[in-house]
Design a protein around this nucleic acid. Structure first.
Lengths: 343, 343
DNA sequence: AGAAATTTCTATAACGTTTTAGATTGCTCT
DNA sequence: AGAGCAATCTAAAACGTTATAGAAATTTCT
């Protein structure tokens, strides 16, 4: 008569509810509850509704460790980022917008900074070997990017901000820097500028190459002179950019247009200009890409092309999820075409 | 003679090594391997060394889902952040430096943005109820912060950037905004300014209250006039700050000093000033806290007090871990005292 | 009506780890 | 030499989930 062993221990209040709790309340087996909640086809409609109601009542949330152990799925998207301080504005928006894109999904965002002194592949090896995420997102892509190569080789899902030489085969979102370079030169030429300086991204990175190529071609077509900043790039420190620009202008005071690929580089370049007595818009036109809308505060006359980082982040979130869920489908690819500034 | 069932399947190359792999190679039981790796006292020294060597050889990494399921520990620190765009600079540095502080530990960082339209407690309830992290870090603390109250009530480990009214009982790191307000007023008074405007953080947040109190007291002592910006604060949008300052100066052109609690607010305020024909440093002194070092580029004459966000992040990382590991120890608390600018 | 097919459910096992309790061995003490 | 003890190991169970294979109940077909 003593049925201690088989007596139902109906979910004590306070304890975290599990499938077992629901199983005991409903009298159904645990797998049935599991399948009911995941809307499996072999569970009756009434049962499903009843189970869902109980789950709601007791406040059931799946234990992620249990799911992960059983399925091997982590439900985590990892974002690996350089800690380069000049990328901060762009980076902050990227994090925030990727997380935004993940908001209504089952996925979580894990941020892993990559330190300049570390091996470039280290965070990626870690993620792949420990299986600590289902997909990785990263940026600052080189044409022959070793991280892309590694992940492709291991068959690990990823999505990148930028394009490698294998871009047609992987998920990416990119800002069309070729078009940006072209627009910049054309716009300045149209305003009568003849002697331009481009402070572009590092040439090693694909987007730097593209921006330079776009600008060069437009310069040829428009018949203006274009110099490419050599000792520095738009990722350099503010001090270096400012000094470089100031220095350059003492040697070549005929420069009448500066094109910049980043918000911070622009501010530094303007500081360098002004130190040499040149004014924005009157003496030298400044044309810049901007991720954060404060250049107009900085100097009213700066010509600005916005980059929609929010959209980029949301796109990358979706692209990463798609790469996890449908590894064989065509990868999601997006390209932002910069718009010509008016006037 | 057929011992298929008991034959040892020594770790196939490619498969992810587990404790079982090591157990089979070493001939030891799985728990023995586990205890050897965790340096338990009841395992022989030679055994420990042998196990560690094998683990290294096969490249063993503990399966986090397994650990988590068994122990209930996630090894994740969650960072919940507002998506307020004017906080971006500060935020990016915070993320990066918290992650930096977690670098050599077993902990991972999970970033969860908090959307202004959502219930303030939503992310916290989620974390506590799903157990998706061991501790939470967050910022923008109010004196009577409901998030702090909730986590305290649930006994969930946390560390915050800022101080609530229960600050003596929880882990925090804070910049001493009272001292900042004091220094700002004293410094401007010393430079002969008489009529100051403070654009501080929202008064609802504790650090806003403190900054205002510090500034007020110093103003009394120095005998200068201090106005507190009422319709806006340093978290307001750039456009609003600019318009507010411009507007104020048309009504009260005798203002000769502006104190600002954030980098972006400072830039906007300067833009507003200049639109009315006032110059930085000559007509009006501008005194600002800055998380990102570019205000000197913006206008050379701005007086700047740096905030060491990197240190704050690293401190918070350590504090959160301590809160997890030693819930009953005295919570870690840190306070950054701003330094007086020279001259 | 009986066989076959379909629907709906359950029992069992497994993912990788750690904890608890207990087993074995060798050693020390009297 | 036998009892007691310390050192070192192992067996079994458990955390919460889902996949697989099969059982039971119901419906459909001929």
């Amino acid at each position: 008569m003593t049925d201690d062993k088989t007596s139902l221990q109906v979910g004590k209040v306070g304890a975290k509810p599990t499938l077992k709790t629901i199983s005991q309340i409903s009298g159904l087996a645990i797998p049935t509850v599991s399948r009911a909640l995941s809307d499996a086809p072999d569970i009756g409609q009434k049962t499903k509704e009843r189970v869902r109601q109980i789950a709601k009542d007791v406040g059931y949330v799946p234990n992620r460790a249990g799911v992960r152990l059983r399925t091997g799925r982590t439900n985590v998207i990892s974002l690996v980022l350089p800690t380069d301080h000049d990328m901060m504005n762009h980076t902050a928006r990227l994090i925030s917008s990727i997380a935004g894109g993940l908001k209504e999904t089952q996925f979580h965002l894990n941020v892993m900074p990559h330190y300049p002194d570390d091996d470039l592949l280290k965070p990626f090896r870690y993620i792949v070997e420990t299986g600590s995420a289902d997909a990785v997102i990263f940026n600052q892509i080189e044409l022959d990017d070793p991280r892309v190569a590694y992940l492709r080789e291991r068959g690990f899902p990823f999505a990148v901000h930028g394009r490698s030489k294998w871009a047609d085969q992987h998920a990416y979102y990119d800002f069309d820097n070729g078009v940006f370079g072209k627009i910049a030169v054309e716009h300045l030429a149209q305003r009568g500028r003849k002697r331009l300086l481009l402070i572009g991204p590092p040439e090693l990175q694909n987007y730097g190459r593209e921006m330079i190529a776009g600008a060069r071609e437009a310069a040829r077509n428009c018949g203006v002179h274009l110099m490419i900043a050599d000792k520095i790039n738009s990722d350099a420190s503010s001090d270096n950019v400012r000094a470089y620009v100031a220095d350059l202008l003492t040697n070549d005071p005929l420069i009448d247009g500066i094109i910049s690929g980043s918000t911070t580089a622009t501010m530094a370049a303007v500081a360098g200009m002004e130190a040499e007595g040149f004014d924005v818009a009157t003496d030298i036109d400044v044309f810049s890409k901007e991720a954060m809308p404060f250049l107009k505060l900085f100097r009213q006359g700066i010509i600005v092309v916005p980059e929609d980082v929010k959209h980029a982040g949301e796109f990358l979130a979706r692209a990463a999820i798609q790469a996890v869920r449908e590894p064989n489908a065509a990868p999601m690819q997006g390209l932002e075409i910069p718009k010509r500034p008016q006037s």
